[in-house]
């Protein structure tokens, strides 16, 4: 897999732009006083936490049992976030062990494209044993294997104005992270978990792992990645409409 020099440079420009102008496009403060608190907490964290901070990585012996929550089967029409168009598609793909599945990468990238599982498997892989911290209060330590999101984004060629990365899925959920977290070395597109292929309940065939934020930011059942210049709150199915903080570092 060859990485274009231009893609890497564009990525650095995007990252550098973020460091210089960090506050040009904030996540929204609209809604109510709680959103303003979220905005303040987000900025306080970005200001006080070293930029190179990595989430704790654990040893094999620390791996714990875990649970799968939220959508655990996008093909099940009883699920709260069932998507009547994409759900049945996921069920068909799951029946074929995801043969024919591909991740779309579009938006503010130089070369929009589709990445099959085989293509993603040919990228350099990263394996990390990290803690999933759920907003509900529980946590679990698992081993995740995948391709750093940064490599995929740089392969697609991040445009200079790109600031956010949005994840679209096979259920109705969608979410986004800022370019700082998207380029973070521990932010990976995971296809493996605890030495096996990503189980259905944990987001097969591909999920993102955002290790410096709470579990709900590690979106499961990825279908499409949209790189954006403007903040997109995800509408009715984004965290903000659901009342949750968009940035979940705490």
């Amino acid at each position: 897999m060859a990485f274009s020099r231009r893609g890497v440079l564009a990525g650095m420009a995007a990252g550098g732009g973020l460091m210089l102008g960090g506050c040009a496009q904030e996540p929204p403060t609209y809604g109510n006083v709680l959103r303003m608190g979220d905005w303040f907490t987000y900025n306080a964290q970005r200001m006080m936490i070293p930029r190179r901070a990595l989430a704790r990585e654990y040893g094999r012996g620390d791996i714990t049992s875990t649970v799968a929550v939220g959508t655990v089967n996008p093909g099940n029409d009883h699920e709260a976030a069932f998507n009547p168009t994409a759900g049945p598609l996921w069920a068909q793909l799951a029946a074929r062990e995801f043969a024919g599945w591909a991740l779309e990468v579009v938006g503010a990238v130089a070369r929009p494209g589709r990445y099959s599982l085989d293509t993603l498997l040919r990228f350099p892989a990263r394996t990390q044993i990290t803690r999933h911290t759920c907003e509900e209060g529980w946590s679990a330590i698992s081993e995740w294997t995948g391709v750093p999101l940064r490599l995929v984004l740089e392969h697609a060629g991040i445009m200079p104005g790109a600031r956010f990365v949005k994840f679209e899925t096979y259920d109705l959920a969608q979410d986004s992270i800022d370019m700082f977290d998207a380029l973070h070395p521990q932010t990976i597109l995971a296809y493996g978990m605890n030495g096996t292929r990503l189980p259905h309940g944990h987001g097969a065939p591909l999920r993102v792992r955002v290790e410096t934020q709470l579990g709900y930011k590690s979106v499961k059942f990825l279908r499409r990645i949209v790189v954006t210049e403007q903040f997109d709150d995800g509408g009715k199915f984004g965290n903000i409409a659901g009342g949750y903080a968009w940035f979940a570092g705490i």
Binding site: T64, T66, V67, A68, V69, V72, N73, N194, G195, H202
Partner: peptide
């Protein structure tokens, strides 16, 4: 996860 390997399990909430 791994039959015979480490004994960790996962269960889906229904």
């Amino acid at each position: 996860f791994a039959p015979g390997g480490h004994a960790v399990i996962s269960a889906a909430r229904t």
